[in-house]
Simulated assay, not measured.
Amino acid sequence: MNLALWIAAGVLAVVALLGGITKTFMPREKLAAAPGAGWTTHATNGFVKTLGILEILAAAGLILPAALDIAPVMVPVTAVCWVALMIGAIVAHLREGEAKVVPVNVIYLAIAVFVAVGRF
């Protein structure tokens, strides 16, 4: 079970890191052209960059506390925050008519629930 939780947290960390880097460093106009990123046309640059930075921090929060054995309770707390983020992402994609990417968000949400429950 511990191995499955590490794998799940690792997958979420990679997703968060890649998404965070993209949102933080890619121009919003270029990001808006990507599939599933139409929501960025209605968001400010500051919001998109802030969301990217939070995703990078989530990547660290899913791995480092447990790996370093420093406040390991932060792993499930971060996973719960990821659940909230995925709920927001689902709402945003549905509002933008991007329902085809919602199943991916649901999968990430389920993985985050697994990590949160397993680590609490």
Rank of each mutant, 00 (worst) to 15 (best):
M1T: 08
L3I: 07
L5S: 05
L5F: 02
W6E: 01
W6G: 02
I7W: 00
A8V: 00
A9W: 02
L12H: 00
A16D: 11
A16S: 06
L17M: 12
G20W: 00
G20D: 03
G20Q: 06
I21S: 09
K23A: 06
T24A: 09
T24Q: 05
M26H: 08
P27T: 12
E29A: 10
E29Y: 08
E29G: 07
L31H: 09
A34V: 07
A37R: 14
G38D: 08
G38A: 09
T40Q: 15
T40W: 14
T41C: 10
T41M: 15
H42F: 05
H42Y: 04
H42V: 14
T44I: 07
T44E: 13
G46P: 11
V48W: 02
L51K: 14
L51D: 13
L51S: 15
G52M: 08
G52V: 00
G52I: 04
I56S: 10
I56V: 14
I56L: 12
L57G: 10
A58C: 14
A60F: 11
A60P: 06
L62H: 06
L64V: 13
L64K: 08
P65E: 13
P65C: 14
A66T: 09
A66G: 12
A66H: 03
A67R: 08
D69I: 04
D69P: 12
I70L: 15
I70H: 15
P72W: 09
P72S: 10
V75H: 01
P76W: 06
V77G: 07
A79D: 09
A79S: 14
V80H: 08
C81S: 13
C81L: 14
V83T: 06
L85I: 11
I87Y: 03
I87H: 01
A89Y: 06
I90S: 11
V91F: 08
R95H: 10
R95K: 10
R95N: 11
G97E: 00
G97R: 07
E98H: 08
K100M: 03
K100L: 01
P103S: 11
P103W: 11
P103K: 07
N105W: 08
V106P: 02
V106W: 04
V106H: 10
I111N: 04
A112C: 07
F114E: 00
F114T: 02
V115C: 02
A116S: 01
V117Q: 00
V117T: 01
G118H: 00
F120D: 02
F120P: 01
